[in-house]
Design a protein around this nucleic acid. Structure first.
Lengths: 235, 235
DNA sequence: TGTATAACGGAGGGAGGTCTCCGTTATTCC
DNA sequence: GGAATAACGGAGACCTCCCTCCGTTATACA
């Protein structure tokens, strides 16, 4: 679907300075993409993004030869914000407070971003830069959960990999309620948090997913239900 | 989007009996639709459904003038199964056991259906027959939850309307994990159940959604993220 | 200011999907 | 068996989106 690795950044002759209209257009495209991704999802039509940026499709594709490249450029900033969140949570002395803060903050970020993030459940297959940041984030999250479990702040049978559940859950809830009850996601997240406290633990009949399964569960940036197929009017 | 109410069942001259090939084709279409909806989601291409049924597009559209009409015909059966589930749950003497059984059973139904149901979160705007069944189901669920709360089997701040969370959550989790860890949904559901037990209740900072909000939160049968727009290849 | 050249942008080909029109075919009923 | 007629089915008009090609335009540098 995406042209794999071959569509990297456009090479530029070193001797010449970057053209001002090029820089301007690139910025206009990024602004438009952010807006449309938030409003219409990560699969907003490329042509429409170009139009919103007041730029021809050709220009859009020169700057970002594939949709993935555009995602990369748009998502880097929120990903770094996410990294910040985990670090703050780890800095807290109380392990449970850290978990709680992190879960709520990350759910909030997702809910308020207009729903184009899904950062916790995104794979970034062809975007090594984003993957690298994600890797860092995941290691920190693991620390956070391991510490909480070691201290008995969360139920012993809860694993990092179970966090995918609240991520998936929150993204759906936020998406469905955003326009109707913008804070409803929080109630869902709090119910989840109550369910992972040690005093509530009743035996789980299903073992946790393995990290490999979790990785495969993550969506590619498209973040679409597998239900939706290519082509045609879809809704 | 859909042709509102004008595309009802096809009128038939009373004098004549129904043609055998017509009946046969209608059945073939339903079989194909069920299979494709399960495999590819509720937006599987109409032409592909027709092809799978070994029928021309024209025939498909004569039987079901719109996608919604096809949904109606396909979804009635699983909806009735759902009604059955609630009744079984209500029949149990133990209120908590009833809630638990219902939540797990309905999550299982959704997860195993190939994901084309989303019955608990579907609105059926243009399908009065389905809406009617849903209404019955909802009243029973309300009994179930009220009874459990009255007996102290679930946390006092939990309302029927909060069930939308597990429905949304489960549909996303099931969808994302079906191919990778077909039972993972159950772990998610059990964590949720633990979170709604009375002994786990910590104060929730957000009030429950109102029934009206819940109703508006439900998806139309398309069950698509608002992200997806009309037209063209969407993934 | 002139020129080389990179960037622009839009027309348009290709792909996939929806839905209809209408000549052909299968059924029902007499 | 023979009409009358409802049902069939597929070609094709039309749509949206993706992405490229290439004549035109803007910019940087001498």
């Amino acid at each position: 679907m995406e042209n794999a690795v071959s569509d990297g950044p456009v090479p530029r002759r070193p001797g010449r300075a970057e053209r001002s209209d090029s820089i301007r257009n690139r910025d206009k495209i990024l602004v438009a993409a952010r807006a449309l991704f938030a409003a219409d999802g990560l699969n907003a039509p490329m042509d429409r993004i170009a139009a919103a940026a007041e730029v021809g499709p050709g220009t859009l594709y020169r700057h970002f030869p594939s949709r993935v490249r555009l995602w990369e450029a748009v998502l880097e900033e929120p990903l770094l914000a996410q990294l910040e969140l985990v670090d703050q949570a780890l800095a807290r002395a109380d392990a449970w407070a850290g978990v709680e803060e992190y879960v709520l903050a990350t759910c909030a970020l997702e809910a308020e971003s207009g729903g184009y993030l899904n950062l916790m459940t995104t794979r970034f297959d062809d975007a090594p830069a984003l993957r690298e940041i994600r890797g860092r984030i995941q290691r920190r999250i693991e620390e956070l959960i391991d510490r909480a479990r070691a201290e008995g702040a969360i139920r012993p049978d809860f694993t990092v990999d179970d966090l995918i559940f609240i991520a998936l859950s929150n993204s759906r809830v936020a998406e469905a309620t955003r326009a109707i009850a913008p804070r409803a996601w929080r109630r869902n997240a709090e119910l989840f948090l109550d369910g992972i406290r040690p005093e509530c633990a009743r035996p789980l009949t299903e073992p946790p997913m393995t990290p490999a399964q979790v990785a495969r569960t993550m969506m590619r940036p498209a973040a679409q239900p597998s239900a939706v197929r290519r082509g045609g009017r879809t809704e």
